[in-house]
Write a protein that binds this DNA or RNA. Structure first.
Length: 431
RNA sequence: UCCCCGGUAGCUCAGUUGGCAGAGCAGCCGGCUGUUAACCGGCGGGCCGGAGGUUCGAGUCCUCCCCGGGGAGCCA
């Protein structure tokens, strides 16, 4: 019998095939046994009916949840079967039979219990589609940049200096020298950008903030890009193209998984159909006040303010030109208004919040040194970075997209911890 | 760091005014010829998070501690 994947069973109707996987669940009714097997691509129901070998019946009765096995039989279309196809089982071969019950049952579990069993939780019905959609998201990002001629250039994860002066870093002992886990690869991308023109990387970054919300991870993945000769407006256009490309790719590629997690693909496509909304920081503050949320001009947006913005347009919105005082030192000032910077945050709709932060970068050494001073940062550790402005400095811009936040939006997932295989959260390093 | 909620069977939870520790699921045994987290009957299963206190009597009330969850701030 030919070994096939469950996702591809539709191509084998009428043929005898073999699937290899794990027993997800079993049910029975009189003389019929239903054996649900998952293989990582999907779940199929095997039916053990009249006329089948007694030994197969016995196995269908006794194999426990998460036993690994091979199941063979004829594929047939069956509207009563989950997924529309089922296997008329004639062959069952156990590979490994657990001797203790699988901890993750099919009924409800508490979050704490699930997180403590994350290594097993990822096998369950909602988690596998989420991880496949995450994969599709990462591939879409890579394809987009590749098609646009960007070069993948990795940034180091072990670094000696901070990127965002404000954010807390994880300190390390680097053979006697203080070092940190990177919170962003951006400064290094600005260097490789001057070597290669258009660059990107996708990698893990670390924030030692004691954040405890459904939108934060201690370790998360960023997709960052940097392009020479790209100005602020070009930067927004690039981000918009990327986000639309990712949404359309994921919807095209993983519609079955989106259905499995009960996310409406039509809504996602509609949200990226029109050009994204663009408002300035000042317009955003006015809109937030208008929605009855209190905040001061000059402050960054709090969670309620960001939520209000997120629901404003029914599509992603760029909030541009923030006050320089609340943004990092490397952002270029708005020539029309020197207390503002040429930056933008992209806020996803439906309350999913900020998924991109980006800006045009400072491109003269004098200006950069001045802004380091204003940020109370010492120039020495940043000398390699300020050096970039001494030889052939050009206008350049870039951004960082939060991969998990994006997957959260694409899948409609309430908590960010389900969008990465092994989330690192406050107070949880196991498993 | 701050605010709120919780901790009772392997899991999810109920437990009244302080008065004998409960259910569903999972496990095991049996039944059912199309199940959809199947269903029906039976069986086993407890350091009520920990320490102290009040009381004739504490899962229940009080104090402290530990652990978990939700949110804020900060950010992607």
């Amino acid at each position: 019998m030919k070994v096939v994947s469950i996702a591809g069973l539709g191509h084998h109707v009428g043929s005898e095939v073999l699937v290899q996987g794990w027993l997800y669940n079993k049910r029975s009714s009189g003389k019929v046994r239903f054996v649900l097997v998952r293989d990582g691509t999907g779940i199929v129901q095997g039916v053990v009916g009249p006329g089948v070998d007694a030994q197969v019946f016995a196995l269908a009765d006794t194999l426990p949840q998460e036993a690994s096995l091979k199941m063979g039989g004829m594929v047939r279309a069956e509207p009563r079967a989950p997924g529309g196809f089922e296997l008329a089982v004639t062959y069952l071969e156990p590979i490994h039979v657990p001797t203790t019950p699988f901890p993750i049952g099919l009924k409800e579990h508490g979050v704490g219990f699930l997180m403590a069993h994350r290594h097993l939780w990822i096998r369950s019905r909602r988690q596998t589609p989420l991880l496949r959609i995450r994969d599709a998201t990462l591939w879409a990002i890579r394809s987009f940049f590749r098609e646009r001629g960007f070069v993948a250039t990795e940034a180091p994860v072990l670094v000696g200096t901070s990127v965002e002066g404000t954010t807390t870093l994880f300190p390390l002992d680097y053979f006697g020298t203080p070092a940190y886990l990177s919170q962003s690869g951006q400064l290094y991308l600005e260097a490789t950008c001057a070597a290669l023109g258009k660059v990107y990387w996708i990698g893990p970054v670390f924030r030692a903030e004691k954040s405890k919300t459904r939108r934060h991870l201690i370790e998360f993945w960023m997709a960052e890009a940097e392009q020479a000769f790209l100005d602020h407006n070009g930067n927004l256009a690039l981000q918009e193209d990327l986000v639309r490309y990712v949404v359309e790719s994921v919807v095209a590629e993983r519609s079955r998984d989106l259905a499995e997690v009960e996310r409406d693909p039509a809504l996602l496509l509609q949200e990226v159909k029109e050009p994204f909304a663009r408002i300035t920081y000042d317009e955003a503050v006015a809109a937030i006040w208008d929605r009855g949320v209190a905040m001061e001009v000059g402050d960054d947006f709090g969670a309620p303010a960001e939520d209000a913005l997120s629901h404003l347009f029914g599509r992603p919105v760029f909030v541009e030109r923030f006050p320089a005082s609340i943004k990092p030192f490397y952002m270029k000032r708005d020539p029309e208004r020197p207390d503002r910077v040429l930056c933008a945050d992209l806020i996803a709709p439906e309350g999913y919040g900020e998924i991109i932060g980006g800006s045009q970068r400072v491109d003269t050494e004098e200006e950069l040194l001045a802004q380091l001073r204003e940020a109370n940062l010492p120039p020495e550790p940043y000398q390699w970075y300020t050096d970039l402005r001494r030889w052939g400095s050009v206008p350049h811009s870039g951004f960082g997209l939060g991969v998990e936040r994006t997957v959260q939006w694409l899948t409609g997932t309430t908590h960010i911890r389900e969008t990465i295989p092994f989330p690192r959260t406050l107070d949880r390093l196991y498993p």
